[in-house]
């Protein structure tokens, strides 16, 4: 399964976890890694090029830090422009049908800040529901987001290394068609610790 990673982070020199994740992703054979802020520093997204690239892959991973409960603005712009009517949805819009939609999100706040009784009032999965609905409209199977809470100030920590390693393992399994898609759609969120159980050795 050819896997595309679309990475969106507007302030990369202040990033630790996402930097480690990016490095890990780039080391996987069969992954096409794109730094969207580097490709489009002036927001001048090339719609045709992005669509063509989507057609060449079977799974799309959106890697980003959560910003105001949502994606960084360039990634929203990317959705607005690239997921066109008649291409991604609507009449004749089945070009993305069957491709996987996977979020890989890092969250600054701890897990306890999310959920109905928390001060944020909603769960992370609920905050990400617009992305899930978008995937649904594009007929793209939506996997539980690969998530890291408390992601700030983790430079050099074990947590960061584990998260990057889990990310790498997940991408390798996707590329090798060994990732259990069905099982990874069930939970609300996926964590590094969940990844080994989702590797399906039998299918290879």
């Amino acid at each position: 399964m050819k896997t595309l990673v679309l990475y969106a982070h507007p302030r990369q020199q202040h990033s630790n976890v996402n930097a480690a994740m990016s490095k890990a992703a780039q080391s996987v054979d069969g992954v096409s890694f794109v730094d969207l802020y580097a490709r489009y520093p002036r927001q001048n997204i090339d719609i045709d090029y992005e669509q063509k690239q989507l057609l060449e892959h079977d799974a799309v991973v959106f890697q980003f830090p959560l910003m105001w409960y949502s994606t960084p603005s360039l990634l929203k712009e990317w959705q607005d422009l690239v997921l066109e009517y008649s291409f991604a949805y609507g009449e004749g819009g089945d070009s993305l049908s069957g491709k996987l939609w996977i979020n890989a999100v890092t969250v600054g706040a701890p897990e306890s800040a999310y959920g109905s009784k928390s001060h944020n009032k909603y769960s992370l999965a609920e905050f990400l529901s617009p992305l899930k609905a978008t995937a649904n409209l594009c007929h793209m199977p939506y996997l539980a987001p690969y998530t890291l809470f408390s992601s700030l100030n983790l430079a050099g920590s074990e947590t960061m290394k584990d998260h990057a390693y889990g990310y790498k393992t997940m991408l390798e399994a996707l590329c090798a068609d060994k990732f259990d898609i069905k099982a990874s759609q069930k939970p609300d969120l996926l964590f590094a610790a969940d990844i080994p159980a989702l590797i399906n050795e039998a299918s290879s």
């Binding site: 507007p10 990369q12 802020y37 520093p41």
Partner: peptide, 9 residues
């Protein structure tokens, strides 16, 4: 010189 394009912008 290696500055990230978005940073350079």
């Amino acid at each position: 010189l290696g500055v990230h394009p978005h940073e350079a912008e």
